[in-house]
Amino acid sequence: MKTKLLSLVAMAAMTASVLPAVAQHLTGAGGTFPNPIYQRWFTEYSKAHPGVQINYQSVGSGAGIRQISQGIVDFGASDGPMTDKQLADSKQKLLHIPTVLGAVVPAYNLPGLSAELKFSGDVIADIYLGKITKWNDPRIAKDNPGVSLPNHPILPVYRSDGSGTNYIFTDYLSKVSPDFKQKIGSATSVQWPGGVGQKGNEGVAGMIRNSPFSFGYVELIYAESNKMLFGVVKNASGNWVKASTDSVSAAAAGAAKAMPADYRVSITNAAGADAYPISSFTWLLIPDPSKDAAKGKVLHDFLQWMLDHGEAEASSMTYAPLPPAVIKMVRKTITAIH
């Protein structure tokens, strides 16, 4: 009886010591914007690598940065790059690895109008600053020759919840309008001088759909999957560009030439004839070195898999994949991860 028990205990001890090498559970937390494609990637990666489970919680970029900085999760994710101060405050060294790209598009509701409207960046900024208050303002009319615009006040709609979408949008407007930069600035939440705020892409989109003469902004993925009408934006080269996975990747390619080694780069208002100006990378935040070497190995292997297989799936989910030049750079970076 006793020997049986002993052997049982020994067996349990053995399995316990063997298990960690077989089953790996990784947890990550971060932005909501890349959540759909991350969930798909992690599921497929687990299928291809039995015993590895990666759990991603889309708690928001801010919370993701906090959790990875304190080492609560194994990796983080953010829709905006961490600031120098955040990196300095972090308890572990973190690397930014770009994964996919997203874009923000201007959406509007003008009853009886089927034409696609064009907006230049400074016009969008002044709509939110309250300087352009009517749809038939000469500056909107100048960008849209031949379109009969109504003499009706514009209702600006913004995202009330803190979000990467806000960050990308205000970052772009701050670049094209000095006045916007000075009065409002860029952040995940800002103090809007007017208009109404709604929660989430669905809130903003619902408000625009239900309110005639409203103007707002939503993520490209959301606009496409809900068949929303959205506007064309003027890019840094002066061309009118409609957001699509191609034009967003073009913005990334334009930025790739001057890509800093830590990938913390804003590609809003990027150079390039076809670049869509309100685009951004989204990043994974990878600790280097990982506290647990085995987990670090899994992360390293996952990033490799993402570049080899994951990127190819991005455009089918309306995310823009990384341009080849950036993929090349990232490959080099991850070989150096411990």
Partner: peptide
Amino acid sequence: NHAAIMKNLFAPGYTLASVIANEFSEAT
């Protein structure tokens, strides 16, 4: 969700509970 003090009830407003719900997760 607009942080302003208006007498006009047709103007948007904001509450304490709403601002926490809106901004806590992305507060950096």
